[in-house]
Design a protein around this nucleic acid. Structure first.
Lengths: 336, 336
DNA sequence: AGTCCGACGTTATACGTAAAACCTTAGGGC
DNA sequence: GCCCTAAGGTTTTACGTATAACGTCGGACT
């Protein structure tokens, strides 16, 4: 029978090489040491090359019961941060013969609906980033190995977690501003119910409460430049002594603060110091260049994937938060 | 035999419901009209629910010979543009029961190495974005249905193409600057061998050659802010009459131009008008806000996915370029 | 009274791969 | 002369699903 225009199977290769299908599988699977002669193996490889044989992954996945594919759930794709996470995860995955499928949760940060209906690929495991605890439930229902990124270790229901030490980053920013002489702070917080943001606020409050005669005001903003403009403008124009420094949960919020400051006639850093968090490309595009906390997104992705591989292999995942580093640029100066 | 801790199969459901595996498949596949009684169907559905049955995608893919999964190859994930493309493509895909797997080509724009080794999922088709023609070869080798985004229609080897009408966007930018009175232009071009960038340069040259006493200088820069700073600074400081307007292939290049101008003591838009292309978040973060060409990335993704679905179903893909729109902001003004 | 048909299922099979179990032959050891 | 082993394969099976092909059993129609 002629198999017109369908891709060649291992059986076709076998026929072309004059061997059985099993022999093809052994040779191409590199399991033939001492079971097939070198000459035959070479014939098989040549036949496979000639026919342009590519194994059918669906069949392989079915046979092996695993797919060597993991799902990376990210809240959104709109910043280069998650691009970095993906890159790091994909690199480690590739080194171990795994592929990474990306699932950007459509609703932004928050409960994802059904990653598994959307990502049609069968999966070996999941890396979920910055997700609310209830979104976890859907994933746990699948009983898939799971690693959580940037999530509350206490609420992770036993899943492995990998975290950036962002609280320390916020502390570094506060320390920097304190040492410049600032005492009146505005915390421009992301208006998103997520552990990571709550942890930042907690850390900030804790550190500043140790220093006498400091004050901190909090404003909330959606994570977008325009949203931050409104929130920052309102907070900076509010009655009472104006803050001299703004600590933002995110570089985009910092960019919004720049625009609000301009609108209010405040000069950065002369009238107002600003810090961000992420170190996006944005941070050096705006003027003055932004003092911000650099997150090593790629390392984050690498560690996340490493942890998932450990879980898959029954090993203990490497623990310990990933350090972050304040990068001092031109948006911070002593108060005037 | 006890099947400890493995996921339930359709056979398990069948046993629980007291029917054959075939009946389960019929009911859950919604193919039972007139072949199974309503009562039995309900029993099956209930059993499936109780056991938490999820069909094995690998088995289904093998059986059906298709995966309802397509690969989206993007040059890089570092801007929100491709995030938009993904979002649009994924939306249309989901409406047709398809999933989208993302493959960010690690080398940036240019030949991808082997998308199929990395994306382990078996695929029904590919959407390739902004790829060099030689990268095509690897993909065509798979004989998979293919749609090219933003690629030379002539070099596409017969694959369907969906393009943004970027040439028209560049023309709009030029028209805008011409009408403001500018005559000496700098084209800050992306230093990437890609059809889309070559097309921009061609269009610009063509349009300006129609206007007497205009001049255009071209500088090349890698697509990054820092790279653009150097390239723009060199070009603006070069001997001869300085250009009064800079047309950039990309918003990031425009951001770099801002920094170069600042360094040279040039004020935007008083001493220098600047236009970008993409309308990234960056465009409104920098000061003054950037006049740029807005690309509807989501529509682009939707159209790309629509075209691929058409190919898969043997229909003729919808043709015609996607219009783009110049957004005039504050970075352009009449020459001083 | 036969037969035809619709309702309601079941049995059997194929998708392509990996790998366990099996077979054949030649040579070596005792 | 017989057994054992190693080399070099082949045969067979299972993974879980979808569906084509095949019953079976009442009742309606001729």
């Amino acid at each position: 029978m002629v198999r017109a225009s369908t891709r060649p199977t291992s059986r076709d290769v076998a026929q072309a090489a004059g061997v059985s299908q099993a022999a093809v599988s052994l040779v191409l699977g590199d399991k033939w040491r001492g079971r097939v002669s070198e000459a035959t193996a070479e014939r098989v490889r040549e036949a496979a090359r000639d026919l342009g044989y590519r194994p059918n992954l669906a069949a392989r996945n079915l046979r092996l019961g695993r797919t060597r594919t993991v799902l990376l759930v990210v809240p959104a794709l709109t910043t280069e941060f998650f691009a970095g996470v993906y890159t790091g995860a994909a690199r480690i995955a590739a080194e171990h013969g795994f592929g990474v499928v990306l699932y950007p949760s459509p609703e932004g940060i928050g409960p994802a609906r059904d990653p598994f209906a959307s990502a049609q690929a069968a999966l070996d495991g999941v890396i979920a980033s910055s997700m609310a605890a209830d979104a976890l439930t859907a994933i746990r229902g699948e009983a898939l190995p799971l690693v959580m990124l940037d999530s509350d270790p206490d609420g992770s229901l036993g899943a492995a977690t990998v975290n950036l030490d962002i609280a320390d980053g916020v502390r570094q920013a506060a320390e920097h501003l304190l040492s410049l002489g600032h005492r009146r702070f505005l915390h421009l917080a992301a208006d998103v119910p997520s552990w990571t943001f709550e942890a930042r606020a907690r850390e900030l409050a804790a550190r500043l409460s140790e220093v006498p005669s400091t004050s901190i005001r909090t404003a909330r903003s959606p994570i977008s430049i325009e949203g931050a403009v409104a929130a920052a403008a309102a907070a900076l124009a509010a009655p009472g002594a104006r803050p001299t420094a703004v600590i933002c949960d995110d570089d985009q919020l910092a960019a919004g603060t720049y625009k609000a400051a301009r609108r209010l006639g405040l000069r950065i850093p002369d009238d107002l110091s600003v810090t961000g968090l992420d170190d996006l490309a944005l941070a050096t595009a705006i003027d003055p260049e932004l003092t911000t906390v650099r997150l090593d997104a790629e390392l984050f992705g690498e560690r996340g994937m490493g942890a998932l591989l450990a879980v898959l292999e029954g090993r203990e995942p490497e623990s310990g938060d990933i350090p972050v580093q304040l990068v001092v640029r031109s948006s911070t100066a002593p108060p005037r």
